[in-house]
């Protein structure tokens, strides 16, 4: 449970971090809060030759609002976001489920997005809200939609030499309603199934985490109350629920039907 040896660079600014990332290529990893990467390193699931610590880059430390979106740069911790007074209603519901108090204090929002665990709450929220990931390399910037960013289990659209500079989350509009719930073995553990819902007028949008390799998104233009059980049953069977150490596929489908009903009722009431 000790990591393999690595060089360590504490970057003072983003250009220094990006240069080092460029020079080291695939062998380098960006280290922010270290709450996911640290576990991967200690278990030797990741063995980078260089860690680039970005947590001392002041320019990446403050949340801002820009063009009807909340911009959350790479060094913002989950706790800092949670303490925001006018927090997005979905994030206010989902963030308390993200890890524990003890890990949220250091774990970053962008780090959770970069880690892309299939059962993590923040990727699920980003996908539901149609957020964007701002990516930067030494010479280029690009923006990727959440739905395109998550490519597989712990696999993202990031290429060697790139890092997440920020994530952008559209601000909530008055006519939107949100709900979130999940089931895990212990509060703060990874979800067996997590479900988030958003209603805007008649349009209902649902994302499911913990089942497929990436957040699964469904949208209904209208959904009558009488049709909800069938719609959720179809959804549960259409996803790739599998048996594993934590739960059976059947239990996961059952959770999708039940948790789905709970969040739909919450956004519809």
């Amino acid at each position: 449970m000790k990591p393999a040896p690595f060089d360590y660079l504490r970057a003072d600014d983003i250009s220094a971090a990006l240069s080092a990332l460029h020079d080291a290529g695939e062998d380098a990893r960006v280290l922010a809060g270290g709450q996911s990467l640290g576990a991967m390193l200690n278990m030797r699931l990741a063995k980078p030759s260089l860690l680039i610590d970005i947590m001392h880059i002041e320019a990446l430390g403050a949340i801002r609002e820009e063009k009807a979106a909340l911009v959350i740069p790479a060094c913002v911790t989950q706790e800092a976001l949670l303490r925001r007074s006018d927090l997005h209603p979905l994030l206010a519901k989902a963030l308390p489920w993200t890890g524990h108090v003890q890990t949220r204090a250091r774990g970053t929002v962008c780090g959770s997005i970069a880690h892309a665990d299939p059962s993590a709450e923040l990727p699920l929220c980003l996908a539901l809200l149609g957020g964007e990931v701002s990516i930067r390399s030494r010479r280029k910037r690009r923006t990727v939609q959440a739905a395109d960013f998550f490519r597989g289990m712990m696999l993202t659209d990031l290429r060697p030499g790139e890092m997440i500079e920020a994530v952008r989350i559209p601000l909530a509009r008055k006519n939107q309603r949100f709900a979130f719930t999940e089931i895990g073995r212990r509060h703060g553990d990874f979800a067996i199934v997590a479900v988030a819902a958003m209603r805007e007028g008649d349009t209902l949008r649902l994302t499911v985490g913990g089942v497929n390799d990436t957040p699964a998104i469904r949208e209904w233009a209208t959904l009558d109350t009488a049709d909800i059980p069938d719609a959720l049953n179809d959804l549960a069977w259409s996803l790739d629920a599998r048996d594993d150490l934590h739960a059976t596929a059947r239990y996961r489908r059952d959770l999708m039907r039940n948790l789905g009903r709970i969040v739909i009722e919450e956004v519809s009431s």
């Binding site: 449970m1 280290l31 640290g38 706790e79 003890q102």
Partner: peptide, 26 residues
């Protein structure tokens, strides 16, 4: 030593932290 059990919890700059998920140089 991978951030799950909480036995190593300390405060770094006033905030709670798992000391097994931090490296001394950080």
């Amino acid at each position: 030593e991978h951030g799950v059990c909480g036995a190593c919890t300390i405060r770094i700059d006033g905030a709670l932290a798992r000391s097994c998920l931090a490296y001394a140089v950080q």
